[in-house]
């Protein structure tokens, strides 16, 4: 299982985390609501993602991961 580099706890198994991907934004206008709710970039390659260290420090983390190689980037 992939180790996730938690800046607070150190490297921990991915099973301790919830991955939200790009995450959801909180729309403040009705304009472009559907895009805000449902459209994601889903980039192949380096991307910033939201992870929740559920069974650890319970902090939401912004981590950079290469979605093509599944490697976390500094």
């Amino acid at each position: 299982m992939r180790l996730v580099p938690c800046p607070h706890c150190g490297p921990r198994e991915a099973g301790e985390f919830v991955c939200l991907g790009e995450g959801s934004t909180h729309p403040v206008h009705a304009d472009g609501l559907a895009d805000a709710l449902y459209t994601r970039t889903n980039a192949k390659g380096p991307a910033e993602e939201l992870w929740w260290h559920k069974f650890g420090c319970r902090r939401w983390l912004r981590l950079r991961r290469n979605s093509a190689s599944n490697e976390f980037l500094p």
Binding site: V18, L20, G23, H26, L50, W52, K54, R58, R59, W60
Partner: peptide, 11 residues
Amino acid sequence: HQRFEYCRQVL
């Protein structure tokens, strides 16, 4: 719990 933390820490 996840959602409360998300609202607190992210939004």
